[in-house]
């Protein structure tokens, strides 16, 4: 009997399970209004951007065209208000407060009102809760297997952690590193030979990097001490010398948290059968006269606390070579030759 069991054949299979592009007709959807704005306790000016959505299947690169001639106003529950003025042209058109104008104040509630062609759109009032304190910020060097194959600094934060008082946070960060080019290796091709003149300019720059992910948490479901908020890549550019990092912690309301939470869920989908059924991201802005009209986007009012620190490369266990950059260092994205104030 046992002997017989060994007889069963293993079928020959070439390939299984396929994942293909799924095309369906959804180009008929009419564009919707998209509103994005923020006020904080940090000094202004604050900007509000108004655009329109595009069909899911559209692939041309025209971008999201801003809506002109909107009347945009931010007001608080104490009777202060300010009408924003348009600034910039073309795709860069935004509405701005004046730098001496309205400013967020913890404890007050703020409302964004947008009027376009006589239709008024308004946000749910956003109360600014205190953003608490950042007690500590540090970087832990992490490797996944061999450091050469993947290492990074994991940025951890200790902040107010009171699970009984549910608070919602969002973080972003800016990293800065210094680069010294090997300008003497700069080379230009002049038919068949490489001439070696010096580059036009600049061998020392400071380069900024920004957070690319949506980082949010609520104090009830996450432990906010030693909480990981960012990963900073390690390479010969970023860590040939020391690295500076500034983290902003924003208090946000429950509906803004919900907005970013579902945006994050959508953006960071793993593409598995366990994903939640896809859903639209619900914003906090409504058409006053017609609550069934869907308006996209979010308006937030936040308190900000920040913390910054330097961390150097002595934790890194592998040898980093001098960055192979021979050209003008200003050609690196987000770089400047101006030494930041905090750099010593």
């Amino acid at each position: 009997m046992v002997k017989n069991l060994t007889l069963f054949l293993i079928p020959v299979i070439s390939s299984l399970g396929c994942v293909d592009e799924f095309d369906f007709d959804s180009g008929h959807e009419t564009p919707r209004l998209v509103i994005e704005g923020q006020i904080t306790t940090a000094p202004g000016p604050y900007t509000v951007k108004i655009t329109q959505s595009r069909a899911f299947s559209s692939t041309d690169g025209t971008g999201f065209v801003p809506v002109k001639e909107a009347i945009v106003e931010i007001s608080d529950n104490a009777g202060n208000k300010e009408t924003l003025t348009p600034s910039g042209t073309g795709l860069d058109l935004v509405y701005k407060t004046s730098s001496s104008g309205i400013r967020g104040d913890a404890g007050k509630s703020y409302t964004l009102t947008v009027t376009i062609d006589g239709n008024t759109y308004q946000s749910i009032p956003q109360k600014i809760e205190p953003a608490g304190k950042i007690f500590d910020l540090r970087a832990a060097y992490m490797t996944e297997g061999m450091p050469e194959f993947g290492d990074y600094f994991d940025i951890r934060i200790d902040t107010e952690d009171n699970p009984d008082n549910r608070k919602y946070y969002r973080w972003d960060w800016t990293g800065t590193y210094e680069i010294h080019t090997e300008w003497w290796r700069y080379c230009e091709n002049h038919c068949c030979t490489c001439l070696i003149p010096p580059p036009d300019c600049c061998s020392v720059c400071w380069v900024n990097t920004f957070s690319r992910d949506i980082t949010i948490a609520d104090s009830q479901t996450s432990r906010l001490s030693d909480f990981s908020i960012a990963k900073v890549d390690v390479n010969s550019f970023t860590f040939y010398m020391k690295h500076h990092l500034k983290v902003n912690q924003y208090s946000i309301s429950k509906d803004v948290y919900a907005f970013w939470d579902s945006a994050k869920e959508q953006i960071e989908k793993t593409g598995s059968i366990f994903d939640n059924a896809p859903s639209s991201v619900k914003g906090n802005i409504y058409h006053i006269a017609d609550s069934t009209e869907r308006v996209l986007g979010v308006f937030s009012a936040s308190d900000i606390v920040s913390r910054e620190f330097f961390f150097d490369n002595d934790q890194i266990t592998r040898q980093l070579t001098r960055p192979k950059w021979f050209d003008d260092c200003q050609n690196i994205e987000n770089s400047t030759t101006e030494k930041p104030e905090f750099w010593d």
Partner: peptide, 24 residues
């Protein structure tokens, strides 16, 4: 199923909007 209908941008993030529930 609920199909994606349109896309829009908030900050640097592209977000997708979907049709009414189970309309495809």
């Amino acid at each position: 199923f609920t199909a994606p209908s349109s896309k829009y941008k908030i900050e640097s993030f592209l977000i997708t909007d979907f049709t009414q529930r189970n309309s495809d």
